[in-house]
Design a protein around this nucleic acid. Structure first.
Lengths: 339, 339
DNA sequence: CTGAAAGCGCTTACAG
DNA sequence: CTGAAAGCGCTTACAG
């Protein structure tokens, strides 16, 4: 790579000090610098194609204008959608984003975090994996600005922007019950992540509220590594309960993906014999003969709020903002009332 | 944010020089440093939770171990998949990735590029938008290591990793012809991007090779901003040719998405009355009653090669690698032979 | 085996 | 209006 031009190069060419060039190019001390020289400096900078060395500036100012983003996996549409929004919002504010994927592994997460911290990010947006709680507490003790998205830890008083997962699951379950369903199964992940525990609770509480006796074999918890056959097995078991379930709540888009594709191969009819309701959007299931009712996460709002809360925090400090956004229940054919 | 601990802090605590601490922590001058003191330094560094300030190191070494990634939009599954692979490959080599989206706009692209350059990335992986050619040439003149992915400019002798788009379209079209199709339409973008021009050429040449007279109304070119209604209109027109087309080649996953969803609402039968073949994977169409035959892009290989070519280039310089990877034709029901 | 010193490219308080 | 100088936190050639 060719040597880049520095302030010094410009200063020498014009026989002025580096400081002066810096002031001009940063529009500082406006009015107190000679118009002539100022114009010349700008002209030379432009001609030589000067570009600020942000690294040097950062070292001096202790600000990198960089946000670290840690997600489960950037190739998951939920996270890539979020990343896209965060990037756009950051860019508006002159921030750049560096990202890393935790792959839902606490160790990998720690390594990514360390790398981002070494790079002196000004703050972080994090969708933490299981077992990250101690690390999050440590971050907080260090006074690093950060905001959690999608996931949170009730025992940690930190910024977060999440779905009101309890309420979402509650509303979803209620919708199924209102549609005449009596035996409602759920497939979710076996995990200690609170946002998923909340979904489970919302489901259980709604059943209780509407006096539907829950039985243990209605709830299937699969490994978060989430393989197809586990999900198919869960569906199969739920359908062979005696009596079989007549409605199914799916706790994530990837669960819905595999479950619905499998159900599509069976003879059971949706929504007549089985209603389906899932979390997140599932574009990949749009061609299913009974389009799915789902609990929509307001991605745009989440990304934007997370970014702005972070930037606010970077600027001035330590009021904590905890935001729970309501899901939007998008009702389609898969949960049509049975008559 | 709390003050971070620096080499100086460690040095002072132990009454040694900063240089010594640096040597030890970087495992330099092994064996020529006292075992005792070395052990002490490591212990204190650990206890104080020292983290290298990568910014300061970069300023000195003129290396950031950072790769800039510029794609169309990180929320497009093609790019987020690529990003995920590139990140993993970069991480293996101690590199971090910073990304930006061009949104297929040359101006936005320039701004993103400038930001990444200011941040002194060691190199770039770029899927350039239209009209980026002059900028790419400039990059090259500046000696910045970079590799193009997905897209390229024939007149620019630069590293790239792309699909053999001509061949892919050729093979796809041939497959349709071999399936008994006589009137093959194509929907692609109206663009000067060469990878798409190549797809168009491959289609045209295959028709010629097999003596199928092409008519102009078989080829629909829509704006790359790619809105649903344009695509539906194109499908409608192709199906109302006289005689109508009996096969359809779709130049991208998002075109396929809208086209197939629209076709699904029509009475026309696939593959009996219409064969469909598309580029890229389209998970979102898996539930279509006639699963699509597609030209699979080897994402993993592309991401890995792009990263490794870049890293090689960063290390030693200026041999140019141009890689065209063959698409894999995945044959499914949508192009079944008509009897 | 260890350290003093220069320097990476900036910013900025201070002086004049 | 402009400049000399310190300093951000490192690395590394050189000296002893």
């Amino acid at each position: 790579m060719k040597k880049k031009v520095s302030l010094k190069d410009i200063a020498e060419k014009l026989g002025v000090s580096i400081a002066l060039v810096s002031y001009v190019l940063n529009n500082q001390k406006e009015g107190r610098i000679g118009k002539e020289i100022s114009k010349k400096i700008r002209a030379v900078a432009k001609r030589m194609n000067y570009q600020t060395n942000q690294i040097a500036r950062s070292l001096k100012t202790n600000k990198t204008y960089t946000i670290g983003l840690i997600v489960g996996d950037i190739s998951n549409p939920f996270y890539s959608g979020l990343a896209s929004i965060i990037e756009a919002e950051a860019e508006k504010n002159k921030y750049t984003v560096i990202f890393g994927s935790s792959h839902e592994d606490a160790d990998k997460y720690r390594r990514v975090l360390e790398t981002l911290m070494n790079r002196q990010v000004d703050g972080l947006i994090i969708a933490p994996p299981e077992h990250a709680e101690p690390g999050i507490k440590r971050l907080q003790k260090q006074g690093v600005p950060f905001v959690l998205v999608d996931r949170y830890f009730p025992a940690v008083k930190a910024n977060y922007v999440i779905l009101d997962n309890y309420d979402a699951a509650w509303q979803g379950t209620k919708h199924l019950i209102a549609g005449g369903r009596k035996r409602i199964g759920m497939i979710t992940y076996k995990t200690q992540l609170f946002h998923l525990i909340d979904r489970k609770k919302g489901y259980r509480e709604a059943l209780k509220e509407y006096k539907i006796p829950f039985t243990n074999n209605w709830l299937k918890e699969i490994s978060i590594s989430n393989n197809k056959s586990d999900i198919e097995m869960a569906v199969k078991e739920l359908l062979s309960c005696n009596p079989p379930i007549d409605a199914l709540l799916l706790a994530s888009n990837s669960i819905a993906n595999h479950a619905v594709k499998y159900i599509n191969t069976l003879s059971i009819k949706v929504p007549e014999a089985l209603a389906i309701l899932c979390f997140d959007e599932t574009e990949s299931l749009d061609l299913f003969y009974a389009p799915l009712t789902y609990l929509k996460q307001p991605l745009y709002t989440m990304g934007q709020m997370a970014t702005n809360i972070l930037l606010e925090n970077i600027r001035d400090g330590n009021k904590i903002r905890q935001v729970e956004i309501n899901a939007e229940l998008i009702i389609r054919k898969s949960t049509e009332r049975i008559t």
